[in-house]
Amino acid sequence: MEHKLLEIKGLKTQFIGDKKIIPAVDGVDLTIHRSETLALVGESGCGKSITSLSIMGLIPENGKISAGEIIFNGEDLTKKSEKELERIRGNDVSMIFQEPMTSLNPVLTIGEQLTEGLIIHDKLSKQEANARVIEMLKLVGFARAEEILSEYPHQLSGGMRQRVMIAMAMATNPKLLIADEPTTALDVTIQAQILELMKELKEQFQTSILLITHDLGIVADMADRVVVMYAGQVVEEAEVESLYENPAHPYTEGLMKSIPSLEKEQKRLYSIQGYVPAPDEFPIGCRFAPRCEKAMEICHEKAPNIYSLGNGHHVRCFLYKELEEIVEQ
């Protein structure tokens, strides 16, 4: 069996907005191995969600994939028809979203929403689908799973709804689960429970996970590898240990410093100055240069390439230009 489950090469996803082109995802490479958890990290607006929606083929109507390949399980998803994508979505690749409060249809019962995917993909009857869903609901921690089936989303708390979403996503036993900030909207204790649940399920189902977050704090606990995105590009990629021990990119360093720490008494929380540039006003040189504390002259003139620190630890920054250069696809 091929070791790589998903390989994204040179992905560009653009939007057409007010007569100009918005390059939201601008040449992203990333790989997810089988039963691996890959964290995709970056501030708001870096293009994390659009990257994941590109995999699903669910980019908003005014956008399109303009270049690149998304090889999933040996097949290029960008070349698939809508019908073929429908068979993959929710079946081989499932997704859960940030807002559990609004991600479920308010007027359909939980049972109806949980079974419809199974009925389509696994050709189950209503009864079989119900049985499977009850099993899944128990697995994600509902003691009274049978009753939940006939309840409506508004009767459940945010944490419970996210559990429902996870049950929905895992019911078809997907090869890849994309979780787009699955705990951002939840409070801290619930957040920990949901992450714990995801880890358990991942062990049990051997699912690969693409965990999107802007919180480096949860990454160490969850992920095997990390990809850091900035302004539509990957700026650093490494194994979790390697990244935490040696954050190479100044942006990653900044993100690390902004993690609130319980051990150290901090007077003020660090935050990177400035903000992520909008996709239609990316700087010419290094896209991080205007905010970078280590920026050099060259950074404002040329865009940096990717350099290898060894062991699969790559960084897009001129500070490492003496190292081996990685050729982009």
Binding site: M56, L58, E82, K83, E86, R87, I88, R89, G90, N91, S94, M95, F97, E99, T102, S103, L104, N105, P106, L108, Q113, E116, G117, I120, H121, M165, M168
Partner: peptide, 19 residues
């Protein structure tokens, strides 16, 4: 969001619209 969820389940467009 729930319409995006419906698409993410792999439901065909017609079904998402109707249901």
């Amino acid at each position: 969001d729930y319409v995006r969820t419906a698409y993410a389940k792999g439901l065909p467009r017609k079904k998402v619209m109707r249901k």
